[in-house]
Design a protein around this nucleic acid. Structure first.
Lengths: 227, 227
DNA sequence: ACAAAAGTGTTAATTCTACACCCATGA
DNA sequence: TCATGGGTGTAGAATTAACACTTTTGT
């Protein structure tokens, strides 16, 4: 069965671009590669596809094992298959991006692997073609954030519109006018206003919102204009 | 070198969703699978990744060998990696879509392989998960057609705006108002009007246009609203 | 002159943008 | 009452959508 087709087989890997959100900024989780070649250089979280799992499973496993992250939002970015992209052997890699609320995570687990959060603006040199992967992931993230209201993954169950705007500003890396963002988002009709208010940020208090369950999958029209 | 990493290797395939354009309609090129399992059932054009090529190369090779198609526009759609998607063996497949001007192609070459063009609306039963692949490819095509002016691949060097609209109607599968489409497209500033007219379709004659070379890669703002 | 396709104009509706303004409340 | 975010309103610009209109030219 394994050798049914008369063709070469290849190492297939997944590489995860883990975007973390903290203090209104997107960060990237990198770790010092644990094995040769390029041991010690900064790398995306990666791992090899095993027999009994599909690529999504593999990506989840990588997040779990390498970073202790569970139930994380994952999205495919694309394939990277240049012949010499991995200097040790021919490896076809499938990139994913993940969205993580840094505050919710166990910092100790990350430290254990030597992982660190890096600011998107000041990334270190990275192994292989990981820099290209990050760039494509960023683009994919923006595209996706435009047709689906992301943020569920980065925000608490209850969140304010200001918090959501901060997420979108981090993703698109530019300021978004609050009044207009508010109107735009509410017009999408995917949020549910709660009767509770967040009083920690202001005296008046800001309404909490939640994502409407049933609107989860709906594809929306351009949320943020890209010019 | 080949066994440098201690992990399983996998068959990696490419499957090409070949969209052809004819008589203002998009068609799909399918062929009857030439080998077991499922020999004779309708299938996308596919092939296995070899050692000395990357995935783009493999896709080009598949188009060339299986369909005699050269210099074809290709775009990655995504990975399909369910464990049992191929009933013979575990195969990770990377899907591509291709755009082809049917009229330009050598019909004989296609016949030789038993390939046939199928209307998008009346596809036959297909092998494995090829139907899912087609659907994702269609979605990717529309997304791409929205941020880049496609059509170069499906149209002659010189084309009229009416022809371009027909391409877009085929891609989005709905009528587009001609006057508005015209204004929208021209405002993008990616086309060059020629001094020659196409007199075959009307007495008055329609201006020919070409794509501006230097605007090739530019990412445009939503060309067709998707509601 | 007229039929038929090419191309332009016009208007109303909608969406974007940039602001100004009002609101609620703890100190 | 006043400082501070939270939230609303509005006017002008830009875009979209629908449809009427003018232009050109072979017959």
């Amino acid at each position: 069965m394994e050798q049914f087709y008369q063709h070469p087989q290849h190492y297939v890997a997944v590489d995860c671009v883990i975007f973390g959100y903290m203090d209104g900024e997107l960060k990237l989780l990198l770790y010092p590669r644990a094995f040769t070649p390029h041991k010690g250089e900064w790398s995306l979280m990666g791992g090899f596809l095993q027999q009994g799992e599909d690529l999504d499973d593999a990506a989840k496993r990588v997040l779990s094992i390498r970073a202790g992250l569970e139930d994380i939002y994952l999205e495919e970015v694309g394939c990277f298959s240049a012949i010499n992209r991995d200097s040790a052997s021919r490896v076809v890699s499938v990139a994913y991006y993940a969205l993580v609320d840094i505050e919710k995570q166990d910092v100790n687990k990350l430290q254990a692997h030597g992982s660190e959060w890096w600011s998107i603006d000041e990334l270190p040199e990275m192994v292989f073609d990981h820099r290209d992967i990050v760039e494509k992931a960023m683009y994919t993230l923006q595209t996706r954030a435009n047709e689906k209201l992301l943020g569920k993954e980065l925000l608490p169950e209850l969140f304010t519109l200001l918090q959501l705007r901060n997420v979108y500003e981090a993703i698109f890396r530019r300021p978004l006018e609050l009044a207009n963002f508010r109107k735009k988002i509410l017009s999408l009709d995917v949020l549910e206003r709660q009767d509770i208010k967040n009083k920690t940020e202001s005296r008046k208090g800001a309404y909490y919102y939640t994502f409407k369950q049933e609107e989860e999958g709906r594809i929306l029209d351009r949320i943020v204009k890209t010019t």
